[in-house]
Design a protein around this nucleic acid. Structure first.
Length: 655
DNA sequence: CTAGGGTTAG
């Protein structure tokens, strides 16, 4: 600790008015330094008002002035808890909460401990700036220093646990509350409900919620959020519908719930409803809406949302711009994505990664790598997600050596630890390039046990290259990990079908039936004139169904003239050949295409999206249709875009 | 004072 530079008795004297006035009107660091010198000469200890003012100014946000403020504090005659607390409070209310944490770190290193008044301030700052682990650490420190946490602290710390999905710590806090016989008020109850619903423990959350009366807005929102996260969107909706006073936060929770449960259409519908009721969205709502648009891949809707964003002043917010880049990529408009990207002056790691992902999705591996190089030259540090996108870009473009190099570089140059997803991408990359043995060895060299994603990548590669033997082995491993993995059964039977091993196909199918494993239902949608039309397989729900089926017949006949013949090999159901033919011709994307052909002209492009991967037959069908009907067909499947033009697909038939 | 909703990948 530094020695005091002033006489302690000086603290008792009132500050001189002129000095006080100078403190209150100071606006720059040099100004403060002058005053500080004067204070030191005068022998008065007025560090507290001095610091309050200094720390309350926006200039305290810069590291150098923060540094100065802290040194004043630490060198003041009596750097005590109260002063430290005042400084921290001033700092936390005026600036980025992170500075409060920085300040706290410096105070600690200088030997100053926090008192019971400082803990809430720093804890809140930690929670607000997303430093949840630090918040938990502070909570432990606080308890061991004998300070009794009050409701405010407990609610804050529960929120930190909820956000980090840390049920262990959160549960401990809950026990602590029960053991210390603290009465649980509405605020704490909501915090607890939020903890359990964030962690997916809906039974516990529901029990606590049932005990609540009347139901409060915050607790109900937490319930909506929790059920939506688990995919129980109908339950979430019924709670939402029962809420009488809805505010922006609960609208947003419900909208993002739909957006993330693959119901982007519902998300947008709800957004419209909210809009009509006059509830003004904020940036968080807009992020969900943009993300819903992205998942839907609806270009007209996307344009509308973009205009809405511009009109309502959200367009300068970086996270919004990032979401827009992603949205346009996923809607098939790489050009628009690129424009926003180029017009974004300050780019963070998400901006760059979104652009890389955009190129990757469209199979443009070289551009993805170029964006990465640019990012590095701009000094932006890539994260784990960036590398997933890069590997994925290499994989879809067949850039094997580049992929290997990037994987190594991730570890060596960027000191990032590859996770399951990264290994999965590498396996995919090697597998696609027919390096199946190397892919298997790669899996065996992993430092941790491979999961279903990693095995699934290899199984997919076995399907592409028709490796029955390895496919069987991999499927077995995969089913050991997850006996109900629908993808494993489907891929395995596809592998058998490709090898014409019908007995085995039947066996896999029976196994699925006995276990009750259901293949995810495929559906497609197409946007025409701002309207989204959805199709299931064999769907006759569309009002123009007759017209669509008539068109489909016509299309099939024309394609058969140029050599198309339905590839029934992958039909899993045991049917007569004629029925198989019918089944495959009624796949949802073919229905969507038929409608698209009716409502578009030669030379235009047709955009279709699908929730699962496109089948072999539909892929061939689209290629031929693009040539015969002179349309560019853009099909987005679960992971990537296929651009069909003049009978060729951009994916090079590996997908 | 404190509690509820968010962007890149999988």
């Amino acid at each position: 600790m530094e020695t005091a530079t002033l006489q302690p008795l000086a603290a008792a004297l009132p500050p001189s008015p002129s000095l006080n006035h100078r403190i209150l009107t100071a606006t720059t660091v040099p100004h403060f330094k002058q005053i500080h010198a004067q204070i030191l000469r005068s022998g008065l200890d007025i560090s507290a008002p001095f610091l309050s003012r200094l720390l309350a100014l926006p200039l305290a946000s810069s590291p150098s002035s923060l540094d100065y403020a802290l040194s004043v504090l630490l060198h003041s005659p009596s750097p005590d808890f109260r002063l430290a607390n005042r400084a921290l409070r001033a700092l936390s209310s005026a600036t980025d909460p992170r500075w409060t944490l920085v300040a706290y770190g410096r105070l600690r290193r200088a030997g100053l401990a926090l008192d019971r008044f400082s803990f809430p301030t720093v804890l809140r700052a930690a929670a607000r700036s997303g430093c949840y682990n630090e918040a938990l650490q502070l909570f432990d420190e606080m308890k061991s220093s004998g300070v009794i946490p009050d409701r405010v602290i407990l609610a804050t710390i529960l929120s930190a646990c909820a956000r980090t999905r840390n049920l262990t710590s959160g549960g401990a806090v809950h026990s602590y509350i029960v053991e210390s016989n603290l009465s649980i008020d509405a605020h704490l109850q909501s915090a607890l409900i939020s903890l359990y619903s964030s962690c997916g423990s809906m039974d516990t959350a529901q029990r606590l919620y049932d005990d609540t009366s009347p139901k409060n807005l915050v607790a109900s929102t937490a319930m909506v959020f929790g059920y939506a996260k688990l995919g129980k969107i109908a339950v979430a909706r019924s709670i939402f519908d029962q809420m009488t006073d809805k505010d922006l936060v609960c609208w947003s929770a419900m909208i993002s719930g739909y957006a993330e449960s693959d119901q982007p259409n519902e998300a947008l519908k709800l957004f419209n409803e909210m809009h009509l009721l006059g509830v003004k969205p904020d940036q968080i709502t807009m992020l969900s809406v943009i993300s819903a648009c992205a998942n839907m891949g609806a270009r007209d809707q996307a344009k509308w949302v973009h205009i809405f964003v511009d009109k309502n002043g959200f367009h300068q917010i970086l996270s919004i711009r990032n979401a827009l880049i992603d949205m346009y990529s996923k809607c098939g408009s790489l050009v628009d994505a690129r424009t926003i990207f180029d017009e974004t002056a300050f780019k963070d790691v998400i901006t760059w990664t979104s652009m890389i992902t955009g190129f990757a999705m469209h199979g443009n591996g070289r551009s993805a790598l170029a964006v990465f190089d640019h990012m590095i030259s701009e000094g932006v540090k890539p994260n784990g997600v960036t590398f997933i996108s890069l590997l994925y870009a290499c994989s879809h473009a067949g850039l094997v050596d580049e992929g290997r190099r990037i994987f190594e570089s991730m570890i060596q140059d960027y000191r990032l630890e590859p996770k399951h997803e990264h290994y999965g991408c590498m396996v995919d990359l090697l597998g696609r390039a027919r390096l199946l043995q190397e892919a298997l060895e790669f899996i065996e060299s992993m430092p941790f046990a491979p999961n279903v994603v990693v095995w699934g990548s290899l199984l997919g590669a076995c399907r592409i290259h028709g490796d029955v033997k390895l496919g069987e082995l991999v499927a077995r491993r995969l089913l050991e990990l997850d006996p109900n993995h629908d993808g494993a059964y489907v891929l395995l039977s596809n592998i058998y079908a490709k090898a014409s091993r019908w007995e085995d196909v039947r066996e896999v199918r029976n196994l699925m039936k006995n276990k009750g494993v259901i293949k995810e239902a495929g559906f497609s949608w197409i946007e025409l004139n701002g309207h989204v039309h959805e199709f299931m397989m064999r769907d006759k729900c569309h009002p123009r169904s007759n017209e669509i089926y008539g068109k489909l017949d016509e299309v099939v006949k024309e394609l058969e003239l140029v050599g198309y013949s339905p590839d029934t090999a992958t039909v899993l159901v045991d049917l007569q050949e004629e029925e198989k033919r019918e089944a495959i011709l009624l796949h949802s994307e073919k229905l969507a295409l038929s409608l698209g052909l009716i409502d578009s002209k030669k030379g235009s492009s047709i955009h279709i999206a699908k929730n699962i991967r496109v089948c072999n037959d539909c892929h061939t069908f689209m290629k031929l249709a693009s040539k015969v009907f002179e349309r560019e067909i853009v099909l987005r499947d679960r992971t990537r875009f296929h651009h069909y033009k003049d009978g060729v697909c951009s994916c090079g038939d590996f997908w």
